[in-house]
Design a protein around this nucleic acid. Structure first.
Lengths: 234, 234
DNA sequence: TATTAGTTTTAGACATACCTAAAACTAAAC
DNA sequence: GTTTAGTTTTAGGTATGTCTAAAACTAATA
């Protein structure tokens, strides 16, 4: 269906994609790292827990709708139009995650399944109002950036704790050292991906940092540890 | 799938009904006035804008899942289990409508379409928290009662304005017609759920009613309009 | 009671999204 | 250049929910 936007007089393609088609686009967008890499059939099948043959069928359909660029045996990627769809779904997913954690008091590990459903609700007004209601958040509870209405977002700068200034806070998004002893140490102190960290104090002579985790647990971590925990500042 | 409820030790049938099946149950529940009347195939087809043949197919399927009582040519009704499903969907629909109006600043006439989608989100925790977040509302923005977790609600005696005697007054609790044009008309004349209405005069020859809204605005409404505004007399 | 109009069901198709199994293709090893 | 292992596509089939057209049934009228 082609409709004319009365304001811009541009031709807009009204894409009415199914829940399933939206999920495929989102998967391809993620696997291609935002459209940068070609994605294989098997990678999509693994990601969506389906079979390669089903993926091939869907690629033909999405190609016919011009939301992916697909050539037999040559892999697939999102088209410009498909990228917009994927980014809108991601925007909705992450806004709903913020809503669930901030307003519905969900834990960060309870939000994903429900957000997978909510991301397909079709109402541009709702998304606009939800964004406003939540105070135009830039990051979701996992520290991932929320695309704006135009699909634009800045990649999260990931900063080690030792580079965060006193009083600043953020979310643990990654670790540099993923050895077992280090991860066990993180577990012991109650640090995990998604945990909220605030830097309370920095000790000059040994480079250690005093931090509070999830506004609950105050702890001092060594310079070495603080260099290996990456934070997305908020 | 049968699971055992740890608290009650009762066997619970985990019904995983589709979006479509839920809509059929809701429709049958409404058309049967809460399970009181037998519902015909054509009535369901009209209500869901589908065809009688499709309804028959679905009735067989819902009967096999024990959520409706169905006998060929004899009409259909919700079973006890089906009634629970229908009431949960209605509860979710109405809670989301309150959310959209109170928190998302939607107008009355904008909520229905979106609530039709949101009512199928599967998360009992979300509904519990949403209910809490909204302050345990008893009525939706159209004045319809919201069933509690057990599916119970009290029906308010709702009387159309044309049946209210001269000099009597009450509160608008609901509307029969919830089409966009009608809701916009109500908005225009300053009528809303919760508004105080007093019937000042009734004109016999055309059935129109002269009313005063909130002791401020005196207006004449047609017979048609007065039949579609429901009042709780006080 | 027989007819008939309207309702409901059945039969057979279609689209979506999935599957398995076999065929086609790619790319790397020999 | 062949072989081969792995990937991808095709072919054909399944389940869901829809449809049209025809058959079956109900209930009201003659």
């Amino acid at each position: 269906m082609k409709i004319i936007d009365k304001k811009s007089h541009n031709v807009i393609l009204m894409l009415n994609l199914s829940y399933t088609e939206e999920n495929y686009l989102k998967s391809i967008y993620h696997l291609s790292k935002g459209g940068k890499l070609e994605v294989t059939t098997n990678a999509i099948a693994d990601n969506l827990k389906t079979k390669a043959a089903s993926v091939t069928d869907m690629m033909k359909k999405l190609a016919s709708k011009n939301v992916v660029n697909y050539q037999k045996y040559k892999g697939v990627n999102v088209s410009e139009e498909g990228k917009k769809v994927a980014l809108l779904v991601i925007r909705k997913h992450r806004l709903w995650e913020v809503f669930l954690v901030e307003k519905m008091k969900f834990n960060w590990d309870q939000v994903h399944e429900v957000a997978e459903q909510l991301e397909h609700i079709k109402s541009s007004l709702l998304i606009k109002r939800l964004d406003e209601f939540l105070g135009y958040p830039k990051y979701d509870p996992h520290g991932d950036p929320i695309p704006d209405e135009n699909g634009e977002y800045k990649a999260t700068p990931q900063i080690p704790i030792n580079e965060i200034n006193i009083g600043h806070e953020g979310i643990i998004v990654s670790v540099k050292d993923s050895s077992s002893p280090f991860l066990q140490y993180l577990d012991k102190i109650g640090a995990y991906i998604g945990a909220k960290i605030k830097v309370l104090d920095k000790v000059d002579f040994d480079g250690s940092n005093e931090i509070i985790i999830d506004n609950k647990r105050t702890i001092s971590i060594s310079k070495q540890v603080s260099e290996n925990i990456l934070i997305s500042e908020s």
